Simulated scan of single mutants.
Amino acid sequence: MKNFVEPSHAYYKHFEASESFRQFKPSSITKTKTMNNKHNIRRNSANELYNVYSVAQDLHDYKEEYQFTEGINDMINFEDCLWLFDLILEEQPHSDSETQVWTLKRVLPHSFTLTCKNKAGQKLAEIKNIEASFYFDDLIVIKKDKLFCLPVEENIY
């Protein structure tokens, strides 16, 4: 057993290192495929965090007789994103589909694109260059008639 008063380099002198370890040269490192791909960033989705709603709960009133599910209401309160639903309501005269799938996706650090599609996948509306300080990179919201819900809540109501 080594005495604690000895300096640490004296302790490590007793270990044998392989020759390959001693000949390590930083210049011999090559970049891996993921290091070269700067666009391979993990996106954080609000839907992954708010996917815990599995039973019908109270609906929350909004404006113009629209309602929010519990998941949407929690997201609005915790993420401060009521502006998104105001924006969706502004686009309603242009979109006549009963069920609409709204996707908010980050394009630049503080710029988003909001896209509306019907269940068949046809694009009904698109708003680009939305300046917002929203934490998540993407969000999917479903509007069924006068109800806003998360995809996980769609079949509950």
Rank of each mutant, 00 (worst) to 15 (best):
M1V: 09
M1H: 10
N3G: 05
N3V: 12
F4T: 15
V5A: 14
P7G: 05
S8Y: 09
S8M: 12
H9I: 02
Y11E: 12
Y12S: 12
Y12K: 12
K13Q: 12
K13G: 11
K13V: 14
H14Y: 09
F15V: 15
E16G: 10
S18L: 14
S18R: 12
E19T: 07
E19M: 11
S20Y: 05
S20A: 13
R22H: 03
Q23F: 05
K25N: 07
K25W: 00
S27N: 06
S27W: 00
I29K: 08
T30M: 05
K31T: 01
T34A: 14
T34R: 05
M35R: 08
M35D: 04
N36T: 10
N36L: 15
N37I: 13
H39K: 15
I41P: 01
R42P: 04
N44V: 15
S45E: 04
A46D: 06
L49K: 07
L49Y: 09
L49W: 04
N51E: 11
V52Y: 09
Y53V: 14
S54I: 12
V55N: 13
V55I: 08
Q57G: 05
Q57R: 07
D58I: 14
L59H: 08
D61I: 14
D61K: 11
K63S: 13
K63F: 10
E64S: 11
Y66W: 10
Y66K: 04
Q67P: 11
F68I: 08
T69Y: 03
E70M: 09
N73L: 03
D74W: 05
I76F: 02
E79I: 07
D80K: 15
C81R: 01
L82E: 07
L82Q: 08
L82H: 07
L84V: 01
F85Y: 09
I88F: 01
L89M: 04
L89A: 00
E91H: 02
P93G: 07
H94L: 13
H94R: 15
H94M: 10
S95I: 15
D96E: 13
S97A: 14
E98F: 11
E98D: 13
Q100L: 15
L104K: 00
L104F: 10
V107K: 13
S111P: 01
T113I: 09
L114V: 08
L114Q: 03
T115P: 03
C116E: 06
K117Q: 11
K117V: 14
N118E: 12
K119F: 08
A120I: 14
A120Q: 12
G121D: 11
Q122L: 12
K123N: 05
A125I: 15
E126D: 03
E126M: 13
I127D: 02
I127G: 00
K128M: 11
N129W: 04
I130C: 11
I130N: 04
E131G: 02
Y135P: 03
Y135G: 12
D137S: 06
L139Y: 04
L139P: 04
I140G: 00
I140L: 06
I142K: 05
I142Y: 07
K143N: 06
L147G: 01
L150I: 03
P151Q: 07
V152L: 13
E153N: 00
N155I: 10
N155S: 08
